Amino acid sequence: MVMPWAFPPFPDDNPSQPTNEESAQESEDLRLAALVAQRLSIDWITRRQQITITVQNRVVILAGMVANVETRRAAGELAWEVPGVVDVCNALQLYGQRRSRR
């Protein structure tokens, strides 16, 4: 009886295992998220706000609630200032502001 190779036959062929390039990208995204979080926590306008920072492919996504428009703008500008960031999606909402339902 002959047994075929078990899937995957080679470690490099495992699609669920991240490649070196994917691991490097994830590390870079984590580094950028930490730098943006540090910037926001240091700035007196943004430090006490409920802001969630996510980074995907060097694109920063800001989500959560902030006190006013100035804080929202400042958070976006601070994220843009971090070297390596290629785009910022500022999805921050103001307290008391609700989305309209249609």
Rank of each mutant, 00 (worst) to 15 (best):
N68F: 07
L40F: 04
R58L: 04
L62N: 01
A33C: 01
M65I: 13
D13S: 11
G76D: 04
V59F: 14
Y95R: 01
Y95W: 10
L32E: 03
L92N: 05
Q93C: 07
D87Q: 02
A67C: 02
L32P: 02
V59W: 15
R101P: 05
M1A: 14
L92R: 03
P18V: 00
G96K: 04
E21H: 08
A75I: 10
G64L: 02
R98W: 15
S41Q: 09
E22F: 15
F7K: 14
A67Y: 15
M1P: 15
V85R: 05
R98E: 12
I42H: 07
V36Q: 02
A33V: 01
D87T: 00
V69Q: 13
M3A: 12
A63N: 11
R47K: 04
C89M: 10
L78Y: 14
P83A: 06
E70N: 11
C89P: 06
N68S: 08
L62P: 02
Q97S: 05
Q97D: 10
P8N: 04
L32M: 04
V66Q: 03
A79R: 02
P9Y: 00
Y95K: 00
I42W: 11
L94V: 08
I51P: 07
N57D: 15
M1C: 13
V82W: 15
S100N: 11
A24R: 06
A91P: 09
P8I: 02
L78A: 03
P15A: 05
S16W: 10
I45V: 11
P8V: 01
T46R: 01
I61V: 11
Q93E: 14
V69R: 13
G96I: 06
Q49K: 06
A63P: 09
Q50Y: 15
N14I: 13
T52E: 07
G76K: 03
A75V: 10
R73Q: 10
V86W: 13
A75E: 02
N90R: 03
V60I: 11
L32F: 05
A37Y: 10
R58F: 05
A24G: 03
R72C: 05
E81A: 10
R58D: 04
L30A: 13
P11G: 11
A6P: 15
V85D: 12
A67H: 11
P8K: 00
D87G: 01
R102P: 13
R31I: 08
R73M: 06
L62Q: 02
R31L: 11
R31V: 10
A24H: 05
P18T: 03
D13C: 09
A33S: 04
Q97F: 12
V88C: 07
L32H: 05
N20D: 14
E22K: 15
R72S: 10
Q38R: 13
V59E: 14
T46Y: 04
P18C: 02
W44Q: 04
A75N: 07
D12T: 11
R58W: 03
E26Q: 12
L32K: 02
V66K: 05
G64I: 03
V36A: 01
V69E: 12
